[in-house]
């Protein structure tokens, strides 16, 4: 449940940063690059998600992330 909640917060962040993406159609296995996010967009999505969740983690924590699910898992564990 926790994971689903966090995924929906991440989708809100994606909608803010990438207004052309239909977030209803985004699945957790996808990566942000495939949604058209450049490196700054990706960083902004991570930071905006953390802000919405009140989490503060160093950005390097997300260094090896390959898809949205791995990012969500890090946020779940925070």
């Amino acid at each position: 449940m926790e994971k689903e909640n966090i995924f929906s917060v991440v989708k809100e962040a994606i909608a803010d940063v990438l207004p052309d993406v239909d977030t209803e159609a985004v699945s957790i296995e996808q990566n942000l690059k495939s949604l058209g996010a450049n490196s700054i967009d990706r960083t902004e999505i991570v930071m905006s998600s953390m802000e919405k969740l009140g989490i503060k983690l160093p950005l390097v924590s997300f260094g090896g992330v390959e898809n949205i699910e791995e990012m969500v898992d890090i946020l779940v564990d925070a």
Partner: peptide, 12 residues
């Protein structure tokens, strides 16, 4: 209050 949340876009 939260410098960590400054948008990365700011630097540009």
């Amino acid at each position: 209050t939260d410098p960590e949340y400054l948008s990365p876009r700011y630097a540009l």
